[in-house]
């Protein structure tokens, strides 16, 4: 119920799901160094946390967060207001806000049973 599991082959099938499109746009913005676009795709808490930890604007700090290059969504899972996007190169977590899906955590490394260790999170 409410769970959508999409496994996508590495040939890059187009995903209609909003969270996948947001994840794609975010990593594309990081890849082309479009800091403003990347920041616009972050959730408010996450953006605030980036600014707090860097003591700088999000646009000035986001490209220095060691977010790995990632180019396509390999697996997307959506449950209610939260989603997880496993990218070819990184894992990101998303949440649904009034103005659409936003990245709430990125540059995440799996820690088995523990929560992912994410360099960018809210």
């Amino acid at each position: 119920m409410g769970a959508i599991v999409l496994a996508v082959s590495s040939c890059g099938s187009k995903l209609p799901e909003a969270p996948a499109a947001v994840a794609d746009r975010f990593y594309h913005a990081i890849a082309v160094h479009d800091a403003a676009a990347a920041c616009g795709l972050l959730g408010p808490q996450t953006r605030h946390e980036v600014e707090q930890s860097a003591q700088a604007s999000c646009a000035a700090a986001i490209l220095d967060q060691d977010i790995p290059a990632a180019d396509s969504v390999v697996e997307l899972r959506k449950y209610g207001t939260h989603a997880y996007a496993r990218m070819n190169g990184d894992t990101a977590f998303l949440a649904e806000f009034g103005d659409g899906w936003k990245i709430v955590a990125a540059a995440c490394t799996s820690q088995d049973q523990l929560p992912y260790d994410c360099k960018v999170k809210g």
Partner: peptide
């Protein structure tokens, strides 16, 4: 059965909120 499916989805929503694998 519906409880198991709905509970699974709600549980995974919580896990994603806590940055855990579904």
């Amino acid at each position: 059965l519906v409880q198991s499916v709905a509970g699974w989805s709600a549980y995974n929503e919580q896990r994603l909120k806590q940055l855990q694998d579904p």
